[in-house]
Every structure is written in structure tokens, then in C-alpha cells.
Design a protein around this nucleic acid. Structure first.
Lengths: 122, 122
DNA sequence: GTAAGTGGTTACCTTGAGTTAACTCTTCTC
DNA sequence: GAGAAGAGTTAACTCAAGGTAACCACTTAC
């Protein structure tokens, strides 16, 4: 039992890599709002999503947090911000192609949340 | 355009439900450590995972945080805590069947993290 | 007897995530 | 001229997340 095979070493190393990868994901996508915003935008991909609309429709978020989280997401190239030169200026937010790669994450979280709620009921 | 069809209403409602489900998931699984601990335990399902071992192998976590997070996870029935009546007392932590339902979440996060790191390199 | 390993706890502290509320500035409408 | 709606910003604050370090009790090995 004291001997550790190479196979075990390799397996151990890949496990550590997984944990590092998760740390990275959590750093970028973690927090109370980022994934909820991403999901919101993904659900309304055909619509014009401007600031006040998102603010109204994501329950509980404040203007300050929304502004900050949108900035963070834009920096990480997950969403785009485009200013429309309309009379009352409008800013449109949209998910990028790269941003769509986080949708599997939101999907599993939605499914788990629904399932968990069901389980609590019983 | 002013009229909103019933179909649109239903779709809108289900989107809101998704966001609520995500909020629930993030409340329970959010933070810096919980999902990493779950992944760690899932990767070592055949082994005896005692406190000090987990503490050593999850990089960066403190004893205080580990104790707290393990308690939280146990309360939510995601892991079990069993005391082994050995000479130096040992406590074994293991993922539950229900705990395994969060593995799809960790898996998508691992994949996204690996993919993101690759993308940063280029 | 002392060091090291088991499983934590406790106290103290810092940081930053997040909230609330007020305010800017512009343009349109009443 | 007042109010509302667009897109935020700013200041002041709270509070929980998280880190650091010391400590406890027990047992075995040296």
C-alpha cells in the first residue's frame, strides 16, 4: 500500500488540475449575480436588453451592482455593451458567442435548483 | 406590439422561475469552497477522507473554513460525517447519493475553467 | 517529557460583496 | 417648469465571507 503507482500519480495530478479549473471558473462567474445576468441575457437573445429593463426584471438587484457586474462580464468578453444613439440614449447588452459557453453551467444550476426545491417540498 | 400573448406570458414566467432556481442553487452551493470540496470528495469516493487529509489536499483552505463548509454541506444532506472509533479518533467525510446530483454542476465548471484557461493562453 | 498527528474551536481582524438612498445629466412630455 | 425615463455614479454603510494564529484534548511514538 505504501507504493504509489505512476497511474495513481497521474490521476492525482489531474484531480488537482480540476480543482484549479473550478477555482478559475468560480473566480470569474462566482457571486450572487453574474450567472443570473448571463441566464437572463441568454433567455432574451432576440430582444434589446437595456439597462433599466434588466434592472427591473432581475429581481432584487440594485443599479450599482448591475452596473458593476455588467462591467466585469464585459471585461471577460462574455457580453457586449453597445450604445444606441437614440434620443434618450440607450445602451444595449447582449451575450457574446463566447458568453454562450457558460450556458451549460447555468443550465445545470437551474436544473439542480428546481430539483432541490422539489425535494424540499417532500 | 402592445398586446402580449398568453404564450409570451407563460414563457416570461418560466424564465423568472429559472432565475429563482438559480438563486437557490447559488445560495446553497455558492462561495469559494463548497463546490471544490464536493468535487474533491467525488473524486475520492473509494477512499477514507478525513479532516486533515482534506485540509492538506485542497489548496489554500483553512481549518476554520473547511470545518464550516463541511458543516453546511452536511446540513444540506450533501455529505455525511462519520466518526471512526479508532485510537486517534478519525472522522470520515463522504458524498451522499443526493450529493452526487451536484456533480453535473462541478463538471460543467471544470470544463469551462479548462476551456477558459486555454483561451487565455491564445 | 516532548513532539507530532488526530479533529477541530476560538478570538481577532481585514476585505470586499452587497445594500440603500441620493444625486447627475440629458431629453422628452405634460 | 415639473416630472419621468434613459444610464448610470457616488457616498455611506452593513455584514458576512474569509484569513491568521493560537489553542484544546487526546494518543502514539521517540
Amino acid at each position: 500500500m505504501a507504493t504509489i503507482t505512476d497511474k495513481e500519480k497521474i490521476r492525482e495530478a489531474s484531480c488537482q488540475e480540476e480543482l484549479v479549473a473550478m477555482r478559475d471558473s468560480i473566480e470569474i462567474l462566482g457571486g450572487k449575480w453574474k450567472l443570473r445576468i448571463m441566464r437572463y441575457l441568454a433567455n432574451r437573445i432576440a430582444q434589446k436588453n437595456h439597462f433599466k429593463k434588466i434592472l427591473r426584471e432581475i429581481d432584487g438587484i440594485s443599479a450599482k451592482m448591475l452596473a458593476k457586474e455588467l462591467k466585469d462580464l464585459e471585461i471577460n468578453l462574455l457580453i457586449t455593451r453597445t450604445v444606441q444613439e437614440t434620443k434618450p440614449i440607450m445602451v444595449e447588452y447582449a451575450i457574446t458567442e463566447y458568453g454562450k459557453t457558460v450556458l451549460p453551467v447555468t443550465e445545470t444550476l437551474v436544473q439542480w435548483g428546481l430539483n432541490h426545491r422539489q425535494r424540499i417540498k417532500e
